[in-house]
């Protein structure tokens, strides 16, 4: 698998660390809404299809990337810096198969 880091260009997957589901939304810190926290920490969409996810280019520039990748074909549809807080990198990113 090759992931195109916006900084470094196309790099082998070995340089990256998977940081999981990018759809999760962290509750605002003062929130004590346990259901919301539980959903954030434990619940995953886990789609068979396009998946919005976070990868860190840990063996490179160390930036976190928001990647849309198909979990059946492993095809990578888009990559962007995660910084900036955009929840999804493009409109396919909700992760429906």
């Amino acid at each position: 698998m090759l992931i195109t880091c916006p900084y470094c260009g196309p790099r082998d997957v070995i340089e990256f660390t998977y940081q999981g589901d990018g759809n999760r939304e962290r509750p605002q810190p003062p929130s004590q809404d346990l259901d919301a926290w539980n959903a954030y920490v434990y619940d995953r969409l886990n789609p068979a299809g396009d998946h919005n996810e976070i990868w860190q280019h840990s063996g490179g520039c160390r930036a976190h990337l928001r990647v849309v990748r198909n979990t059946i074909t492993h095809e990578i549809l888009s990559t962007a810096f995660a910084r900036g807080g955009h929840k999804s990198a493009d409109n396919r990113a909700e992760g429906r198969s």
């Binding site: 997957v13 070995i14 660390t17 998977y18 990868w55 979990t71």
Partner: peptide, 13 residues
């Protein structure tokens, strides 16, 4: 392999 997958195929690393 360390990432979500339904592919039943692995990677080289």
């Amino acid at each position: 392999d360390g990432y979500n997958s339904y592919a039943q195929r692995g990677s080289l690393p």
